[in-house]
Structure formats: C-alpha cells, structure tokens
Design a protein around this nucleic acid. Sequence first.
DNA 1: CCAGCGAACCAGTTGCAAATTGGTTCGCAA
DNA 2: TTGCGAACCAATTTGCAACTGGTTCGCTGG
Lengths: 258, 258
Amino acid sequence: MSDPDPLTDSSNLALGRLRALLDDSSFDAGQRLPPERELATRIGIGRRALRRALEVMEAEGRIWRQQGKGTFLGSRPAHTPTDLADLTKRTHPLEVMDVRLEIEPALARLAAMRASNGDIERLLLLAEKTAATSDADGRELWDSALHRTIAEAAGNSLLLAIFDIVDRIRQDTTWRLLRERARSGERQQIYVEQHRRVIAAIAQREAHAAEQAMREHLELVRDGLLTVMTSPLPDSIDRAVPPEPVTTNNKDRLRHGT
Amino acid sequence: MSDPDPLTDSSNLALGRLRALLDDSSFDAGQRLPPERELATRIGIGRRALRRALEVMEAEGRIWRQQGKGTFLGSRPAHTPTDLADLTKRTHPLEVMDVRLEIEPALARLAAMRASNGDIERLLLLAEKTAATSDADGRELWDSALHRTIAEAAGNSLLLAIFDIVDRIRQDTTWRLLRERARSGERQQIYVEQHRRVIAAIAQREAHAAEQAMREHLELVRDGLLTVMTSPLPDSIDRAVPPEPVTTNNKDRLRHGT
DNA sequence: CCAGCGAACCAGTTGCAAATTGGTTCGCAA
DNA sequence: TTGCGAACCAATTTGCAACTGGTTCGCTGG
C-alpha cells in the first residue's frame, strides 16, 4: 500500500498555522472566521492550501462552513424546529409510517366522536371515488384526500397541521416510485375495503372500531412498504441515485496515495 | 329599529359594476385583481366606495385581500403546512394537551425500547435536577429538557421534529401565566414523582409501563390545566386581551342604521 | 511534470432601498 | 351628509449590490 494520506507541504503548513490561530487567539465558539481570501493572505498562504486545511478541520468537527454565509467555529448549530423544508432529508419512509401509525388511528377515533354529518357525507363520497378510480395517480389523489378528510373531521387544528406536515413528507417525490410499487396489485383492493371499514366505523360513531380499523390499515401499508423495500427490484426500473452528503465538497479533495 | 343596512348609493353603484366586471370578464379564479386605485378609476368611482364594495365581496367569500399583496378572486388559499409561526393563533391549550397525549406516550414507549445507556444516564440526571429545583423558571426549564430528552431517545427524527413543533407552541409566551398557575402547589410534587416513574420504566426497558406512566402524567397535567381554566381568577391578575380577528378592517365599515 | 499560486467565475446568502399594494386619515366640495 | 382625491402608513415583493464559500482556469517556478 502507498502512503495513507500525504498532505502536501503547503497544506500542512496551512493546517499548522490555522490551528495556532484558532487555538490561542480570541476567536470564541460560534464566531465567524474572516473570509477565506482574507485568512489566506493573513496566514501567508494560497487559498487552495487554506481550503484543504479548513476541510480537515471541518472533518474534525472544529469548524463548519456554508456557502454565502461563512466559516464558523464549533459544530453546526442544531436544526430549529421550524425548518421543515428539509425534514424529508433527515427521515425515511419507515419513520414516516411509524408516525402515521401513532397519529392517524387517533385521528380516526376523534373523527368518530366529532365528525359532522357533512364530514361523513364527504367521507362516503370519497370512498366511492377511491374505489371507482383505476389509474395510479387518481388512486393516490383520492386516497390522500380521504385520509385528510378524516384528519379534518377530527376537529383538532394542531393535530391536523401535524398530519399535513407528515403528509407532505410522505408525498415527497423521491418516494413516488416506492409508493407506487407498494400500492400495486391485489393490495389496492384490500386498501379500499379497509377504507370502507374505517369510514363505516366513523359513520356509526364507533370510536374504538375506527381507531382499530385505521391501525390495521396503516399496518398493512407499512408491511407493503417493507415488502417492497426488501424484495429485489426488476431490472427495468432504474434506481434513484443515492443522496449526496450534506456538503458538496467534491473538489479540493485531499489526494490519497499516488 | 332603524333600517338594517342602507348601502350608500355610490357603494351600491360600485358593487354593481364590480360584480359585472368580475362575472363576465376574463378574470379566472385565484387571479389578482388590478390595484384598488386603478380599479377605482376604471370603474369610474372613488376609492372609498370601491373599498366598501370590495369589503362586501370579501364578506361574501368571493375575494380576499392582503395588504401589500393585492386583492384576489376566490377564497383565501389554505395554510401551507410549513407556516407554523402562527399555529399558536389557531390552536388552544387543550388541543395541545390532546396532541401531547397522543404523541408523548408513544415517545416514551419507543424510548424504552431504543434508548441508549447514555440517554438513560441523562434522564436520571434530569430527574434529579427537576426535583432539586424550586423556582418556577427552573422547573419549567428542567421539565422541558426532560420531556425532550425522552423524545430524542425514541430515535425517530420525524417524531422528534413533531414534538419540537408542539413544544414550541406549548411554550408560547401568551400561555405562560396559565402554565405557571397549573403547575403551582402540591401538583408539582406529584409531577416529579410521575417523571421518576416514567424514567424508571424506560431505564428498565418496560415499554408498556413507560407509555402508561407518561399517559397518566399528561392526563394529570391536562386536568390541572382544566382546573385552572375553569376556576375563577383572583382579581389581581389582569386578563389578556382577546385576540383580534384576522383582518383588521376597522375602518371603511359599512354604516348601519343612522 | 506538477505542486502551488492568483485570478476569475459560479452559486448561495444577506441586507437594503425602491416600488407596489391594501389600510387609514384628512381636507375639500357639492 | 356624502363622496372624492390626496396623502400618509404598513405589509409585501422585487431588484440590486455586496459578500461568502465552491469551482475552474491558466501561469509560474521548481
């Protein structure tokens, strides 16, 4: 084997000076470092060498960088609860199903207790529509509308908002193929029947039955997802590319060996 | 009683012309109307009269307006799931407690199954801290940290994000007094004991016991909230002003009677 | 050949000023 | 009293400039 990782002389020099600067200077945690261009001239070294050194320190977790913002000491601050846009990057389908299994049976139970007659009318209508639709897109739309109507009928605005969050993540485009495969075939018919059962329980105000029916439905959906995820793919379907790591430092990489 | 609502002649005229313009013209649903100033001159009427007419149509649900954006046809679009900033305006404490009762027992159960030993160490430490603190602020902080640590230990990032959303709403400043009153007195000691029980169940990996203990805890918290909300206030505490309706159309109101 | 450098360009972020819009007040005139 | 125009206030959008890290390029000196 060749040398594991020979930093170039210049980068080594930069790394040393950078550590010295950060260790004994007045930089506090969380503070922004000077921009790379300035830092490079101050240390007396080129920007490329500096960036290699910064990359090392970022890998060590001592700094973090973001394009357009700057380079900061310490570890990347935790996500605030409100930035849900990229939640889909940090979760995965099974987590989502676990959450649905916690929330939607409760919604069904509440709906059975609090749904208005108008809600129930709409639910019955949706059940028909779902059963009558054959194309994949249509099924998905009606199914989604059905579950959301139940969530609305539960009459808890906060829980509805949470349902919407989960639903938006669930509908993420990158999981579209997954959903389609999980829904195909004979499973769809069972889903329709399960929907009917949930709605019937809600219409008859049987809270416990509604909760249980919804739970059984979602458990089957989860099982379908599991089956699809663990069974091999037919060759015709091209796999999605695996997601990139958060930082896209594809260049300026340290060279290994020769 | 006097006349119920005599629209002024000018406003009536404006309303008629506006309806005509909207009905037979090429304005599609969701489209933005021309600005009021332009619309006023085009119809050939003053802006005040136009605004009265627009107010009527807004009340009818045919249009909606927003300062700085414009006037739009159709009904106000539904809230997107991502704008959580004002969720606290649309919910209320009992809804929040209902949601917590759905989510946190599940979190406790998952935590019992998946918590690392490090998590459990932290939980035990937090239980001590909570018990040892006496001031209200401190209790609130430790309590919050305790519940969140359990949520973290559950190992479901999506559920954790949802917990954070609910927790942020729960901590809304306008409910601060409410929380303080609900926590006062002998209830606090029971809470500490309940926390201990939840943590013990998690530490011993008793999933069902953890879930049940958390549920009992939250039910007591909810009962405390109910008690506080239904019992009369001492006179010394000034009540918060009731929230304003969404739109602040306090002027240009149609005049009733004489 | 190549490690290192500076320069230039790309892309994401921030801040600010201007423009636009609905919301409101005011004075004037018929 | 009623309606109008003008002016101002406040929320929102838009465009731009400046600055940042990310990337590519060509040059230089060994």
